[in-house]
């Protein structure tokens, strides 16, 4: 679905991601793990060109989304970001109504008919299990929701655009355990017909939900992938001592 070919990311003169070639497949969850500061988030930001918003960031190598180079100037960033959605560590509801939060993206991406938008909103709110909780107060401020509800709203907001890929940057780490479990279950369901990449520091979580695994590590001052493959394979037969120490919790 989306893959990188020797992707590197630089901030000024500092290379934070070097030479990463990785593939996210449809229907599978790829967990990206590794110690802090090894370039996981920068890698994720490059996939839907959010990296463009970081001053001084430069990218080398290629990101291919359905075999099209996303850094090709002829392509629309907006359309790319619609199809490659992203969720952040801290939920970021817009200070607008719940309804506006979801419908904004739909309007932007050309769903003109109001009834269509309402139907799609109900659908995605049901998908994230929020409909029963908020259907009677769709016009209330989204910022009044609890943390877990906010994060599910952000998921619903991204889902409304029917993305092919979802990039999740530690989506559960700012939530309490109950809300985290709820979001985690949701992620598993959502992976059926799309590719999902999830950055996580929680190895237990990676073990629970990941189909594929990529381990990032700092080598020569910049982050790179030192192991990738199916989660089962890497957890059971780590390819090198560094990985096995990390996965067993002895380092990192």
């Amino acid at each position: 679905m989306i893959r990188t070919e020797s992707l590197s990311v630089r901030y000024g003169s500092r290379t934070v991601v070097r030479d990463v070639s990785l593939r996210l497949r449809c229907g599978r969850i790829t967990a990206i793990v590794g110690p802090s500061g090894c370039g996981k988030t920068s890698f994720l930001l490059a996939l839907n060109r959010m990296i463009d918003l970081v001053p001084g960031a430069a990218v080398a190598g290629r990101v291919l989304f359905q075999d099209v180079d996303v850094f090709d100037r002829r392509n629309s960033i907006a359309e790319l970001r619609r199809r490659v959605g992203m969720i952040f560590q801290k939920p970021v509801p817009f200070p607008l109504s719940i309804r506006a939060n979801i419908q904004l993206g739909l309007k932007e991406h050309g769903v003109r008919n109001r009834r269509d938008r309402e139907a799609m909103m109900e659908q995605v709110l049901r998908d994230v299990g929020l409909w029963d909780e908020v259907s009677d107060r769709l016009d209330c401020l989204a910022t009044k929701l609890s943390g877990g509800q906010q994060q599910r709203l952000c998921l619903a907001r991204a889902l409304a655009l029917d993305p092919d890929v979802l990039l999740l940057d530690e989506p559960c780490s700012a939530l309490d355990p109950v809300a985290a479990a709820c979001v985690e279950k949701l992620i598993t369901e959502l992976s059926r017909n799309r590719a999902i990449a999830i950055v996580t520091h929680n190895l237990a979580q990676a073990r629970r939900i990941a189909d594929d695994l990529a381990v990032f590590w700092v080598r020569d001052g910049s982050g790179t992938v030192i192991a990738q493959g199916t989660a089962e394979e890497i957890f059971s037969r780590p390819p090198c001592p560094t990985v096995s120490d990390y996965l067993s919790g002895r380092t990192g």
């Binding site: 959010m50 970021v92 607008l96 904004l104 932007e108 991406h109």
Partner: peptide, 21 residues
Amino acid sequence: ESLLVAAAALGLSRPSVALRI
């Protein structure tokens, strides 16, 4: 800034980020 980043991540164009968010 996080609001604007989240809006951009939804694929909102610059005018939408400015006027709607």
